[in-house]
Structures are given as structure tokens and as C-alpha cells.
């Protein structure tokens, strides 16, 4: 079972990102589960969401304490919190930042840390600093847990009825996929 923990701030679409991973994994033929950390959600406050992917039905309901993949939507969180809590030597982190990974405060082997300037892609293509879908393009490329096609389908399903939003998000995801 693969456990994915997403960290971000309220308003960044952290919960939606977990849901998109679950939908995309499911469309890729896997079993999946996604849920938020059910915190008091305030804009800007640290938020977590979780996704699990497996070949068998997932019945475990506890939050994710031993992540295989960390997605960090806002690198400023690294300065104040231990994002790698519960990680092991194989855990990888995908971090939205313009900085070089050697300047990031995360307790993981450097080879396991991937960075993407999702904010830049989001601003250029979506026109807003909404990075949750963008970073998933990198996630698909790096982990191969979901296909790019399944991810695009998940975006189309999740944002059904908002055609322009879907088109922009898919374009941004493709860009992120290509860059990594």
C-alpha cells in the first residue's frame, strides 16, 4: 500500500489534490482512498490531506503517519514544521518551490527530494496561484502511481461543468509533467 500525505495551507486545494490522486489512481485500475485531516480550515493555516493507493480494497481509516510520498504545496511550511515526520529512507518529497533543494529544510536524503516551481506554472497558465493540480503533474511523472491520462480524466471529472478551468488545469499539468 502506498501512502501519500499532502501538506499545504488552507485555500490551496490540498483536499482536492488528495481527491484527484484517488480518482486518477482508481482510473488507472487501482484501489484508492482519499480524505482530509478534518482540521479547523482557515485560509492560510497548515492543512493536511491523505491518499492511499493499493491493489486490494483499502479498509484502514487512520491518518497517514508513515508516508511513502510527501507532497508539499507550500515550501514556507518547511521553516516551521517537520514535514518529514514518520518518513523512512525511501520516502520521497515533491515540493513546490523556486529554491534549489539544497536550501530546503527537510529531513530526507537529497536524492529523495524533488522540486518544482508549480507557482510559476500556475501563474503563467492558470493565472492564479493555485498549485494543487500543477504539482500533481510532477507527482505522476516522478512516482508513476497514476498515468498522465488518468490525471487529466480526474481533473475533467472533478471540475465537470467548468470547461475553461479544466482546459487550463490540464495544460498546466502537462507542463509540469514535461518539466520533470
Amino acid at each position: 500500500m502506498i501512502q501519500i500525505r499532502i501538506h499545504g495551507r488552507g485555500g490551496q486545494g490540498v483536499v482536492t489534490a488528495a481527491e484527484l490522486i484517488a480518482i486518477a489512481a482508481f482510473k488507472s485500475g487501482k484501489q484508492a482512498q482519499a480524505f482530509p485531516s478534518f482540521g479547523v480550515e482557515r485560509t492560510g493555516a497548515p492543512v493536511e490531506a491523505y491518499a492511499r493507493i493499493d491493489n486490494n480494497p483499502i479498509i484502514l481509516r487512520e491518518q497517514i503517519y508513515q508516508p511513502n510520498v510527501l507532497i508539499i504545496q507550500d515550501a514556507s511550511l518547511l521553516d516551521n514544521f517537520d514535514m518529514s515526520k514518520g518518513a523512512d529512507k525511501k520516502t520521497i518529497a515533491i515540493i513546490n518551490t523556486a529554491k534549489d533543494k539544497s536550501n530546503l529544510n527537510i529531513n530526507l536524503p537529497k536524492a529523495n527530494v524533488y522540486t518544482i516551481d508549480a507557482t510559476k506554472i500556475a501563474m503563467e497558465i492558470i493565472g492564479k496561484n493555485i498549485v494543487n493540480t500543477v504539482i500533481l503533474g510532477a507527482f505522476a511523472r516522478i512516482t508513476d502511481l497514476v498515468s498522465l491520462d488518468a490525471l487529466k480524466q480526474a481533473i475533467a471529472e472533478k471540475f465537470a461543468g467548468h470547461d475553461e478551468l479544466i482546459a487550463k488545469n490540464i495544460k498546466a499539468v502537462e507542463q509540469a509533467y514535461k518539466n520533470n
Binding site: E19, A22, I23, F35, F38, R61
Partner: peptide
């Protein structure tokens, strides 16, 4: 509540 109402699963 939440554990089922807000969770995505097949």
C-alpha cells in the same frame, strides 16, 4: 461523520 462522509473510496 467525516471518516465516511468526507472520504473518497470506490
Amino acid at each position: 461523520g467525516f471518516i465516511m462522509t468526507h472520504t473518497y473510496e470506490p
